[in-house]
Computed example of a mutant assay.
Amino acid sequence: MKKFPILILLLTFGVLSNVDAQWTEAGNYVTLSSSSKNVGIGIAAPTYKLEVNGPTKIFGGQELQIDNADISFLFHDPGDIIYSMGVDVSDSRKFKIGNGAGIGDNTFFTMTTDGKIGIGESSPNAKLEVNGNQRITNEIRFKNTTTLKGLVWGASNWTATYSRVDDYGGNLYVMTDDYFYLAGINSSTGAPGNKTLTANTATGTVGIGTETLDPAFKLLVNGKIKAEEIQVVVDVPADYVFEDNYYLKPLAEVEAYIKEKHHLPGIPSADEIKEQGWQVGEMNNKLLEKVEELTLYMIELKKENEEMRQEIDQLKKKIK
């Protein structure tokens, strides 16, 4: 038996007779209320223009078209609205999902007509904009042929202070126009803990174990350094000592200087070292200078000893 012609007949009869028409079969029924003009499918007393109690299916190739100022669907338990979903015509025809009775009430998902999605953000300015905490259990992968990709913190117009982590040519860049910190984390609050590394990207200075940076030094370390090898570049090596025009102070002059100053000529005093520190490159070169001067003094002493030995040998021969 075909149900639809009978259904149409019953609905027509109900409208014409100005009484409620009802079709039942195995406990299911269709109701047309002549007073409210509401239609119910699977419900005896519909309170909306169309109210369906049961699964609903629209076959492929067909469409469900709704024309209204604000287009919405409400999903709820009886008397308790759970979610609202629809198009907010008054707000640039954005598609919204919320947990209020109307479109725009307690909205947590927004999609604009040009494909931008906001979660917790009603006016997204990017393909995906999230206002709130996120948790991702798997990887985040960026695929972009432009130079602007990666993770960005700050204003979207690139004019204010911002930071960025990005990949360029297979190299990872951590970029900021202010200070960069590598720090521990407070496990209770999530706030930064002690700063292990501090970098000023404007001056190119780095501090390890200290936040106080000095633009005169590229690296400041508050603590001990252990290394297998350190290479220090010196502009003028100490080999100038062996040049013919180098003035090698007589030992008597060196002795007088030591008695007066209590340190070697050309070497900082103990007070100067305490105040200014030990400049590794400069001081190593000065120490090498003193070693080379000592070598020259030893060569001179050896010559003097040879001359004295010859004179002593000659005196011994005369005595014999």
Rank of each mutant, 00 (worst) to 15 (best):
L151G: 02
D313A: 08
E306G: 03
L315V: 11
I66N: 08
G223Y: 04
V174H: 01
T107N: 02
T212D: 14
D91L: 08
T112F: 05
N28P: 12
V165C: 04
D67S: 04
V30G: 10
S34K: 07
Y162F: 10
F4I: 03
K274C: 07
K49Q: 14
K195C: 04
F95A: 12
L197P: 00
R309V: 06
I140W: 02
K261W: 05
N245W: 07
K3M: 15
N68H: 12
S156I: 11
V19M: 08
A44T: 08
G204I: 10
Q62A: 10
T146E: 11
I97Q: 01
L64N: 07
V221H: 00
P237G: 00
R309Y: 05
E253C: 04
E289K: 01
I208W: 05
T31S: 10
L251E: 13
D77I: 08
T147V: 12
E306C: 03
N68Q: 15
A26P: 13
E121Q: 13
S122V: 14
E306Q: 05
L288W: 01
M298F: 14
G86D: 01
E307R: 03
A160M: 06
I258W: 03
I273V: 07
N138G: 09
V221L: 00
R141M: 15
T210W: 11
L182H: 05
P265H: 06
N305L: 09
A45W: 12
V291C: 04
L50K: 06
E63V: 11
E243I: 04
A270D: 15
L315E: 11
